[in-house]
Structures are given as C-alpha cells and as structure tokens.
Write a protein that binds this DNA or RNA. Structure first.
Lengths: 208, 208
DNA sequence: GTATGGTTTAACCTTTTGGTTGAATTATTT
DNA sequence: AAATAATTCAACCAAAAGGTTAAACCATAC
C-alpha cells in the first residue's frame, strides 16, 4: 500500500538524499546528475532504483508529506483540549528540522506551479492535516470556547504563514539590512517563538 | 532612477508579455524561446532590448513589485482610520487581476529559492508594503484601538495567506474532489470575500 | 532616392540536458 | 565454487538549451 514500505533501502536512501536538492533548487532547477551526486550514486542507479526525474520527484513529495502529516498526527493525538491541539499543530509545522525542513520550499513551488506535480497521495496527506485542524476547531465550537469560522481559511492562514516564514529567512535578513529601523527581535523568531506568536494570533482571532 | 521610465515601449511590451510566462513556469522552467514566442518577437530581440534570461527575470520582478506596491499605496493613502487602511491593504493584495495576478506565484517561487534572484529594487518595494501596514498598526496602537503586536508577523500572515490562497486554486479544486465532505463555500471565495474574511480574522486578533 | 542609424531576424554554435546501454561488479542460490 | 540473478557504473547519445551573428529591414534625414 504505502510506497515507502516496499521500497529497497537503497531507494529510500536516495529519496532521503535528493529531497534536499529538490527543496533547494526546485524540479526544473535540478539536474539529474546533481541528484545522483547528492545520493552518491551513479545516474543510472536512480533510474534502476526509482525511475526518471519526474518519478523521483513524485516519490519525494509523497514521502515528505506523509511524514509531515504523521508527525502532526502524533503530536495532536495526545493533546488535551482543542486549544492545545491547535497549538501543537502549529508547533510541529513551525519546527524547521529534519525532513520537515524541506516541506515548505517544495510545497511553495508546487503551489506556484498549480500543483500539477502533486500526486493524489500527496494531496491525501494534505487533507489529513486539514482534517486534524478541522476536528480541533469543531471541538472548540462544540465546547463553546471557539466561535465558528471558516476552518479552511484558518488552516490556510496557519500553513501559509509558517511555510513562508520558514522559507524566507534569507529575504528577511536582506530586508533587515535595508531597513535598519526594523526591530530584529520581531523579524527573527526561533521556531518556538514563531509557533507561540502565530498560535496567539490565530487563537485570539477565533476565541468566543 | 526608475528602471521602467527610460525603457522603450518595445521593451515594456516584452516585459508585460513575458511576466505571465515566468509566473506560470518559473525561472528555470521557462525556455528563452518561449519568452520570445510570448512576446511575439525574435529571441535575439530579447537580448537586444533587455538582456539575457536573468536580466529579463529581474526586470519582470522589479516591475511587478513596484506596481503592486504602488497600487496598495494608492488605496491605503486615502483611507480613514487604521482599520480601513488595513482592510484596503488586504483588499488590494487579495485582488487577483492584472499584473497583481502574477505576483503571488513569482514571489512564492522566489521565497522557496531563498530570494537569490530578488534584486534590491524588488526588496525595497516589499519594504514599502511592510512600512504601510506598520504605519496603520502603529496608528491603531496610538489610538488605543489595536493592541501592540509583532507587526512583521502580521504582515507575513496577511501576505502569506493571500498569496497562497490566490495561487492554490487548482489544488483546492482537487482537495475538494477528494474530500466531498468539505463545504465548497468555505473553499472557494471570491477575492472580495477572501479579503473580508482575512481582514475579519486579522483584525479580531489584534483589536484591544 | 539614398545614406544612415537603430532594430529585427533566421540561421548557427557550443554546452548541457535527460536518458540509455552493455559491460562489470556484487550478492544469492544451488 | 559455479551459476544465476540483482545491482551499479562509465561511456555514450540525441535533443534541447542559452546565447551569438551577419545579413536584412525600416524609419528618418538629407
């Protein structure tokens, strides 16, 4: 069922290695030879183990989104009230480490491209995320602590803010240089501070 | 000073035409011959009138961001209180027409790429936008109607939400197909409704 | 009309691209 | 240890890429 499980260790190592390259340069910006070099493998091995450039990319996408959704699901599962569910949801997505680090740039490019390269498997994982937040919001509404809002838009707001923020650090640096008046403590947040501030803003906008 | 003003009408026509192509395919995804075809001009004319592929892209970026910032500045200038300034700020950026239509995908890709291709001129226009919102927020805080928050984060939140929403329509469509339970009226908003809902959420999160 | 300047173009060149292949290597089975 | 199957690789290839150029074109001035 899962495309990961019946995959050879070599193939998974390749996917692990090339994820970073796709994240940094984007599908069109990457040369197959770079992928091979990153995976420390001959170009032909990529084709033998996985497939052509497009297939490589699809596999990377699926793997990445499944892991992201799994991580969030794990964190949200054992949270108490709806507010802490939402906070954990945000906290995980704000964390910019491991494989999650590459999710944002890849997804930003996918969105920009109209999602033409997003396989259904990847969309399903996005829907999982959407569902988790939706449940937390519904729970809050039922409990009377949250007002009913457009859950999809709130989801978009959270994900968009976190993805853009995680990815635009180099741009922020330049903006800060160009505008010495800007307070650096507002521009450069640790992922924890980012999560807290985003959660505060979001929650105070949807509380009753 | 402005790179636009001393440009020949031919060159500006080229920039106008190729903006769409860059927006749809991204820098690496575009072939110079496609750009020439889109501008209905020979490939060599691009080089004669403007320059190589990278220069073309830089010019497109500058032009696009300057126009976006100008539009927002115009709308915000003659607004009354800070809330209506913020609402207009959001309304203009939510509008997905004309040149503004291409800003979102291009900027998303730029962010994903770490802004390596963003010329300072383009960053300056982004700073202008940031400044406009910052002023409105400060005004509200001074008047006691808004609480002090991280203005940069609020800016990110607004821009990120609007850019992602404008660009991910095709993905939303597929998500809606995959999840028939989702209410379509939440997923598919007119740009006016989007602006209203985003403004409502943002304002209710920063009001005193 | 024709000389002059800027402008456009078809054809061309070099390098790089994604993709392939048959031989070599390694692992597995008997 | 011989035979067979799975895997990796260096070398190769056709197509496509970005970029250049010399000739043609066209407006204006004389």
């Amino acid at each position: 069922m899962s495309a990961d499980t019946d995959i050879s260790p070599t193939a998974d190592g390749i996917l692990e290695a090339i994820t970073r390259v796709f994240a940094e340069k984007g599908y069109e910006g990457v040369r197959v030879s770079e992928l091979a070099a990153a995976a420390q493998v001959n170009k032909a091995t990529l084709y033998y183990q996985i497939g052509d450039k497009e297939t490589l990319y699809h596999r990377v996408l699926e793997r990445l989104l499944r892991r992201a959704a799994d991580e969030v699901a794990g964190a949200v599962a054992d949270a108490g009230d709806c507010e802490s569910k939402i906070r954990r949801f945000i906290a995980i997505l704000a964390r910019n480490t491991g494989n999650l680090r590459f999710t944002a740039p890849i997804m930003l490019r996918e969105v920009a491209a109209g999602g033409g390269n997003l396989p259904d498997a990847a969309l399903l994982q996005m829907s999982r995320l959407l569902g988790m937040l939706g449940e937390a919001l519904d729970e809050g509404v039922a409990a009377g602590s949250l007002r009913p809002v457009n859950g999809f838009l709130v989801h978009m707001m959270i994900v968009a803010t976190l993805m853009l923020y995680s990815s635009n650090e180099p741009i922020r640096r330049r903006v800060a240089e160009l505008n010495p008046g800007l307070a650096p403590e507002n521009l450069f947040l640790s992922s924890e501070a980012l999560a807290d501030q985003v959660a505060d803003l979001v929650l105070s906008s949807i509380r009753t």
